[in-house]
C-alpha cells in the first residue's frame, strides 16, 4: 500500500494540473483574505479586527482550498479514466480496491498538507496586513481554525476521489461538484433550509472552519464526523462501482 501511495504521489507530482490548482487556490485565498482586511467595512459589516471579520478572512483558505482539493481529488480518478491511464493502474494492481484506497490516502494527505500550506501562508499574510492597520490581536483561535481547515481539506480530498470514481467523466464530475457546492448547498439550501444544510458537506466544512461565529453550524467534532461520514459513504459507493466496472 505504501508503494501504491508513493505512485499516486508521483503521478500528482508529474501532473501540471496539480501545481496549477494549488497555486490558483493559494492566490485566490490570499486575494480574498487581503481584500477582506483592506477594504473599509460598509455600514452593517463587522469592523476590521472583530471576531466576525477575522472569521471571514481566515475561513478563506478553508473555503477556497477545499474546493481546489475537491477538484484535484476528482482529477486523480476521473482524469485517469479520461486519459485511459486507469487501465495501466489496474494492470499493475489488479486488486482495484487497493488502487482506490491508495488514491484516497493520497488525496487525504495531500488535502491536509495543501490546506495547511494555504492556511499558513494566508494567515501569516493576513496577520501582517492586520498589523499594518493597527490590529495586533485577533479574537479567534488561529490553531482551532487551522485544525478545522486541515481536517476539512483532507475530507474534501476524499470526497473528490469518491465523486471522480462515481462520475468518471472529469468535466461532468467537476461541473456536478461545483453545482452541488455553490448552487445547491451555498445558494439554495443554506438560505432556504439552514438547519438541513449544516448536515451537508459544505455545511459541515463551515462548522469546522467557524470559530465563535454566529452561523448556524454543527459543533466542530460533529462537523468533522459528518464530513467523514459523507466521504466514507461516497467512497464505499465509488469503490463498489470501481471494482465491478469492466474497462472496455
Amino acid at each position: 500500500m505504501i508503494n501504491l501511495v508513493r505512485i499516486e504521489m508521483l503521478k500528482l507530482r508529474t501532473t501540471p494540473a496539480f501545481y496549477a490548482t494549488a497555486v490558483a487556490a493559494l492566490v485566490l485565498s490570499l486575494g480574498a483574505a487581503i481584500t477582506n482586511v483592506l477594504i473599509t467595512p460598509g455600514p452593517g459589516d463587522p469592523p476590521v479586527g472583530s471576531a466576525a471579520n477575522a472569521q471571514d478572512v481566515l475561513s478563506q483558505p478553508g473555503a477556497v482550498g477545499s474546493q481546489a482539493i475537491f477538484i484535484l481529488g476528482i482529477l486523480v480518478v476521473a482524469g485517469e479514466y479520461r486519459h485511459r491511464t486507469i487501465m495501466g493502474a489496474f494492470l499493475a494492481q489488479p486488486r482495484r480496491l487497493r488502487v482506490i484506497v491508495a488514491k484516497l490516502a493520497t488525496m487525504g494527505a495531500v488535502g491536509a498538507a495543501l490546506s495547511a500550506v494555504i492556511y499558513g501562508v494566508t494567515t501569516a499574510t493576513a496577520v501582517s496586513v492586520y498589523a499594518s492597520k493597527g490590529v495586533h490581536h485577533l479574537p479567534v483561535s488561529l490553531v482551532d481554525l487551522g485544525l478545522g481547515t486541515v481536517v476539512s481539506g483532507a475530507c474534501y480530498g476524499l470526497l473528490g476521489v469518491a465523486v471522480g470514481a462515481l462520475a468518471r467523466n472529469t468535466v461532468a464530475a467537476i461541473i456536478g461538484g461545483i453545482v452541488w457546492i455553490q448552487i445547491l448547498e451555498v445558494a439554495v439550501l443554506e438560505n432556504a433550509a439552514p438547519s438541513f444544510a449544516k448536515w451537508l458537506p459544505v455545511g459541515a466544512a463551515r462548522g469546522l472552519t467557524s470559530v465563535g461565529s454566529s452561523l448556524d453550524v454543527l459543533s466542530r467534532p460533529a462537523s468533522a464526523a459528518v464530513l467523514v461520514v459523507w466521504a466514507a459513504g461516497l467512497v464505499l459507493l465509488a469503490s463498489a462501482l470501481s471494482t465491478r466496472r469492466e474497462l472496455r
Binding site: 505512485i7 508521483l10 508529474t14 501532473t15 485511459r84 491511464t85
Partner: peptide, 20 residues
C-alpha cells in the same frame, strides 16, 4: 489501448510504470 497523461513526459510516464 492504455492511454497516457498528455502533459507528462515520456520519462515521467515510464518512471511511474517502473514504480508500479
Amino acid at each position: 489501448d492504455q492511454g497516457f497523461q498528455p502533459n507528462r513526459s515520456a520519462r515521467n510516464h515510464l518512471g511511474i510504470v517502473a514504480a508500479q
